[in-house]
Simulated assay, not measured.
Amino acid sequence: MKNSMITLAAFSLLLIVSACSSAEGEKAKEVFKKSAAASEELDSFSMEMEMTQKMNVESEDSEEGIPDGIPLQTTMNSDMQMDPVAFYQTVEFMGQSMEQYYTEDGMYMTVPGEENWYKAPEELVDQLNQISSEEQSPGNQLENLEEYVDEFNLEEKENSYLLSFSSEGENVQALIEESVEEMFPEGTMPEDALEGLTVEQVNYTFEVDKESYYPKQLDAEMNFTMNMEGEETSIHQTMSGSYSNFNEVGEIEIPSEVIEQAEDLPDSGNTPQ
């Protein structure tokens, strides 16, 4: 059950996708295309994201895992470099924190409850190496939705545009499956990874700066279920993220002391004791 919850939490982070509903026509298309193009040209940016999940698990084992309805809160602060892809980020989950560095030289991280640095297995690094800068771009989600642009709802504010979407059922299910598959390099996602996913409803808003067309804010709400190892889990998820420091993040390098001190992280994925 514990491993299922860890997999579920990691997988759900990837479900930051969108579609749309309504019709500001050509103006919405213009904003959509300019924002996607501007994001592709970014050299670097920072992102702050907060996510809250409430889960209800249908399981015969009531003594393991996380109690139903308890909010699971995750906060992530990231500095991203696009070419070559590199990042430094801090992640806090339910009061426990970790740090991560990733460059072409490898991935290094701390784990909750440990003071040491660990070097990630080569298998994980190889998968990250296959992710292009375009796939890391904030505008990649918009590109995945290009064929749905006619359905965007556009609201114009003083200094920004709001692109929004609300949908449910089969329409959003197909869209999200396509978008999730686009996030993974070919061969890195299990063939049956989406079989247990059912998306019921998504509400999504993406705020774009009027002058630069860079993303400013992401807000999303989603209801979905995951069927894993015979257990069905219903999740209500809210997410809020902001972008900043466009082209102002310096070159991301792994500190020499981190490399020198790091121990190998077990390939099994078990947390060192």
Rank of each mutant, 00 (worst) to 15 (best):
K54M: 04
G187T: 13
L197W: 06
M222A: 09
S133I: 05
I254V: 15
Y204K: 04
Q273S: 15
F184K: 06
K27Q: 07
L145W: 08
H236A: 12
S212L: 08
E181W: 11
Q273N: 14
M1H: 00
P138Y: 01
E260Q: 04
E155H: 01
V91I: 09
V180R: 07
C20N: 04
K119I: 14
F184L: 09
L175S: 07
E99Y: 11
P84V: 12
F87A: 03
P84S: 00
L128Q: 08
L197K: 03
L124R: 11
Q173A: 03
N270W: 12
D105I: 05
F184V: 11
N245P: 11
M98D: 02
E155L: 02
N3P: 13
M94W: 07
K216V: 08
N247A: 12
N129Y: 09
A19Q: 08
A37H: 14
E229N: 14
Y102W: 13
L175C: 05
E50N: 14
S166P: 02
Y213S: 06
E58P: 04
E104T: 10
N116F: 14
F152D: 04
I16W: 03
L124D: 15
E257A: 10
M107W: 07
Q136I: 12
N56K: 05
Y161V: 01
E156Y: 06
E156M: 03
I70C: 00
E114Y: 09
E177D: 08
T52Q: 07
S4Q: 13
P266N: 05
T90W: 09
Q141S: 08
Y88F: 15
A36W: 07
F246G: 02
E151S: 08
M98T: 08
S240I: 10
G95H: 08
S62M: 01
G65W: 00
V258M: 02
Y214R: 03
H236L: 08
E123A: 14
Y88T: 12
E251Y: 06
A10S: 15
E257Q: 10
M49V: 09
V91P: 09
Y88K: 14
N247T: 11
V249S: 11
A38M: 04
E170F: 04
A174E: 11
T52N: 07
E143K: 15
S35P: 08
E146N: 13
E50A: 12
S39M: 07
F206S: 06
K2R: 15
Y88Q: 14
E30M: 07
Q73K: 15
L142G: 01
P84R: 01
A28E: 00
N270I: 14
E64S: 08
E63V: 03
